[in-house]
Amino acid sequence: MSGPRAVVVSRGRDLLRVEMARPRQRNPIDDTLLTELAAALDEAEADPGCRVLVLGARGADFCSGTDLSGDRPVPGDGLAAGAELPYWRLLDRLTRSELVTVAVVDGRATAGGVGLAAACDLVVAGERASFRLTEMLVGLVPAMALPFVARRVGEQRAFAATLRAEEFDSEAARAAGLADLVGADAERVLRPLLAALGRTDRATTAALKRYRARLFPRDERLGHDASHLLLERFAAPGTRALLDRAQEAGAA
Rank of each mutant, 00 (worst) to 15 (best):
R13Q: 04
L178G: 02
A6H: 10
E155T: 09
L99A: 01
T134W: 03
D185A: 07
R212D: 14
A6M: 07
Q156D: 12
F148A: 02
A6F: 10
K209C: 06
A252G: 03
E187A: 11
G113A: 03
D14T: 06
A161I: 14
R245W: 00
L99E: 02
A125D: 05
A226I: 05
D121P: 01
S130V: 06
D169N: 14
A143H: 01
L41N: 10
E45C: 05
T204H: 15
A143W: 03
A203T: 09
A83Q: 11
D61V: 01
T239C: 05
E19Y: 10
T162H: 02
L37H: 04
A207T: 09
R199E: 15
D31T: 09
R164H: 12
A119K: 02
E171V: 15
G223N: 08
R108I: 03
A46H: 15
L163R: 11
E220Y: 14
P237F: 15
R157V: 09
A246Q: 09
V141Q: 07
A195H: 15
V123I: 11
L122G: 02
L16A: 00
R24C: 08
D30Q: 05
E248R: 15
A186K: 01
V138Q: 02
R89N: 02
A80T: 13
E135T: 04
E127A: 10
A60W: 15
V153W: 14
A44N: 05
P147N: 04
D219W: 14
A165C: 12
G198D: 09
V105I: 07
V18K: 03
D14K: 08
A143C: 04
G76L: 08
L90Y: 03
G56L: 07
A158I: 08
D106Q: 01
Y211N: 03
R89K: 12
G198F: 10
G59M: 04
V18T: 07
M136R: 11
L243P: 01
D31V: 07
G65M: 12
G238H: 11
A109D: 08
V102I: 05
P23E: 00
D185I: 13
R240Y: 14
E84W: 06
R214L: 08
L16W: 07
G107H: 13
L79I: 00
F159L: 12
S10R: 15
R188S: 13
V8C: 01
V124N: 02
A249G: 09
A125K: 01
R151E: 14
P4Y: 14
